[in-house]
Each structure stands twice: as C-alpha cells, then as structure tokens.
Design a protein around this nucleic acid. Structure first.
Lengths: 229, 229
DNA sequence: GGTCTTTCTCGTCACGACGACGATAAGCCG
DNA sequence: CGGCTTATCGTCGTCGTGACGAGAAAGACC
C-alpha cells in the first residue's frame, strides 16, 4: 500500500435517484439506455466522475447535463455507494448514488447522451426492468426519502418556493402512500417553530376557502417527528 | 461514456470508524501513520479495495487485518463516501467510509501495516491531528452512531452477548455523553417488544441488587424512539 | 445478626403530543 | 342566496414521557 502506483484502478460514477411528486404520485426520473449492456432498459441517470471534481459536484453536473434540472431549488444528498465486483460486466465500477428531491418540473427533458428521459411513477417501476443494480438503489432512495420526511423539513424541497399546507400534505401523502388527516397535519406543521413562514399571501385553489401561503423557514429538524406509522 | 477504456482511473479505499465503549467513555480505534504524507499522524484504519471484492467485504477484511477484530460480534455498515479531488496529494482517491460498533475488546492490537493502533477517547481526538479528511469522517461516524441509538437496537452491538439493562444504559450514556434516569430507561427498554430477551440469569455487579441478564431480541427498531434531547 | 449503602425494579403523577373528529370560516358555483 | 368545498380552529380521550417516590435484594461494616 506504499507504492503510489501499486493499486487497482476503478471507474467511479455517480447515479441519481431524482424524485418528484406529480399529480399526487411519487415519480422517479429514468433514462432509457442506448447502448449495451442493458440496451433499451430503463436506468437511473448518471455518469463518470471527472478527475478534478468532487462527488457532490459530479452529481450536480450530471443532474444538469442529463436532465436539465438545476439543483438550485430542490435537494441533493449522497445516498450510498454500490460497488459489487460484477455490477457492470464491462469493468470494475464503483457508483456513488445520490438522492435528489425536486419540485414538479415542466416536462422530462431528453438528456444529451440518453435516448430518452421520463418521469415514471415509482410504484409502476418493475424492478427487473432496471439496468444493473439500479432497482436496489432506487429502493434505497425511496426509503431514505420516506424516512427523512419524518424528521426533516425536506418535504419542502418537493414544493415550489411558496406553497400551502395542503400542497405540503400532498407531498407527504404521495411519498408515504397513505392519506393524512388534514386537520392534525395542519396543527402539527404549523406548530413546529421556524418550519413555515407566513408570506401574508392567500391563495384559492379553485374551490374552497383560500389557504395561507408559506415559504420554508430556517428549521432543520421536526421534533418530535411526524409519524408515518 | 461508451468506450470501455475512456474513463478516469480512481483508487478506491475503505476507511473504518471503529467505535467502542470503554470505562464509560466512547473510544475510536486509530492507527499511527508510518509513511508520508501525514507520517506520524493519527488516522482511521483502512486500505485499498481489492479488484474482486465488494465494498462490505473489503471493510470486513481491513477490520480483521488491521485491528484483529472479527466482525462476528458487533455491527458494520456503510457510512458515506469521501472523494474530494485533493484529499490525498498522491493520487485521486475515493474512500468509502464504514462504521463499526464493537464490544469492548481485549486490547488494541498493532496492525500489520500500521505502526501502532490505539483506542482513543473520542472527546480527546484533536481534529487537526488526524490525517486527510479523517476528522470529518470521524465526526460523521459519531453523529451516525448517536442518531441510530435513538431508533435502533444497535446499542447492543457495543455490549457482550449477554448484558444487563445497566450495561446497556452505560452505552447510551457514553455515546450521548449525558446521564439518563435509570428508572425511566429501564421502563422504556423493557417495554419495547422483542428488544430484550430474558435469559433467566441474574448477575450481581459488586454492590446492589442483582440485575436480570438479557440477550438481544429480534426487534429491528425502537418505536417510539428514545430521545437524547 | 442488624443496620447502612448500593443498585435494580416497580409505581405514581402531571404534562404534552397525538389521533379521531366536531365545528366554524371563507371562498366558489349554480 | 343556499349548497359545496376546502382551510383552520377546538375538544376529548389516550398514550408516552420525565421527575421522582418507594420497595426489593444484594454486599459492607459493626
């Protein structure tokens, strides 16, 4: 381990689990592979880490390149690293997966080097259809998102800059896949200090009484956590 | 990204944050570096991933090689990956850090390729003394351990196969760095279903009423969590 | 053997958070 | 102007928790 050139060479990639909520359902951004192996299969967007960039930078760059999403709004964090020796038949690849939570975006943009990109409802993703070990990575990403909504203000990353309590609740319901009581949810989120900041604005969504419009506050944790049971 | 040999070469290593509780204090296993850079500085144990092994395997192997610890008892999980371009001046290294929680071990064993190994109380580790970005990795590992004790039965990984409630409480107090009420702690942990299994045995620790001896049960989560406040 | 001390274990009580759900406010729509 | 819908506030019983009292069961000391 001393000789500076006596070490195995690995390819290092970043893979992205990009989640959003559309029409009340949790979606993941997938690209269709244009090359072997797994030609024609769905895969997570990703690519090689460049020699001079940090992992977080590489993830942000790939996100912009392949999906046109700029991470300004939303949230990007490292998810985990996957490095089974046979996960890619071509070479020894270690992939650092990242989790992105994004607000509902215009329309999936075909990437530069992917045949197609699309938002796919998470429940409709058939595990075996995904390339490499991406089914596992996706499952880990979804589970991380579900868990983090409990104790972090991360759900706001799925919302626009300004949002109502009902919109925030819709995020929780989509990610957790179960309905929440609007009254208890309202009481809970409005009682957490510094979680929501009242903008003074009111917004009426078609029917019903107008809702107060909030923007995210400086709170970093929700204590005690929301419970998904 | 198509040519199988058109990609940057990285070295991939595993680094280990090995924690244990000794004499009521949280300790981390450190090795003293015998080579430049950072010769003579403390560092986390670790080493290169071999071409044919998975990351988890590599971590377990390094643990055994450098510290003589077999992961049979204890707990090993991936912590996170650190890949800043300049974190090692010799080459581009991406390090997959792992967290190990081990019961109190005989005595630190000098590793095969490290000058010395030692248990160091976590509070006494001076950040700038650690090699590379290991201070950050250690901080992340300790924070992960603290957080996981809240909602997982992981504290038992710090204990021997059979332990008393007081021993378990000592683990929490050491990791969280604050005293807990023995009566409330006892009520809490004994009320979680399948967390502790009564072995029928009693053990008297010098003074005082003998304590019931438990072994870990099949529970995977503590709900609702313990609070470290 | 009797006390004292120590530790383990069980109870009690007040408070706060939560789930279930009723009631009111404030807009649209016909 | 009623009806409908959604937002927001209140109430009530239950449960988990922190603070702490009290009994149980051992060793220590006289």
């Amino acid at each position: 381990m001393d000789a500076p050139d006596d070490w195995p060479r690995f390819a290092v990639t970043v893979d992205l689990v990009v989640l959003t909520v559309r029409h009340g359902r949790l979606h993941v951004l997938l690209v269709r592979r244009g090359e072997d192996p797994w030609r024609g299969a769905w895969a997570l967007p990703g690519g090689f880490v460049h020699p001079d960039e940090d992992l977080h930078e590489a993830a942000a760059r790939e996100l912009a390149e392949e999906t046109g999403v700029h991470q300004a709004a939303g949230h990007l964090e490292q998810l985990g690293t996957y490095g089974a020796p046979d996960r890619d038949p071509r070479m020894r690849v270690v992939s650092v997966a990242h989790l992105v939570l994004a607000p509902d975006l215009p329309e999936p943009t075909a990437g530069t080097d992917a045949a197609a990109a699309a938002w796919v409802p998470v429940e409709e993703v058939a595990g075996p259809d995904l390339a490499f070990d991406h089914a596992r990575i996706l499952a880990d990403g979804v589970e991380r998102a579900r868990a983090k909504l409990e104790y972090s203000p991360l759900a706001t990353a799925f919302c626009a800059e300004r949002f109502t309590v009902a919109e925030l609740r819709a995020v929780y319901e989509a990610v957790w896949g179960r309905p929440l009581d609007p009254r208890n949810f309202h009481r809970k989120v409005t009682s957490v200090p510094d979680l929501l900041v009242d903008t003074g604005e009111r917004r009426t969504e078609g029917r019903g009484r107008p809702a107060t419009v909030y923007r995210p506050g400086p709170a970093t944790t929700i204590a005690p956590p929301l419970s998904r049971d």
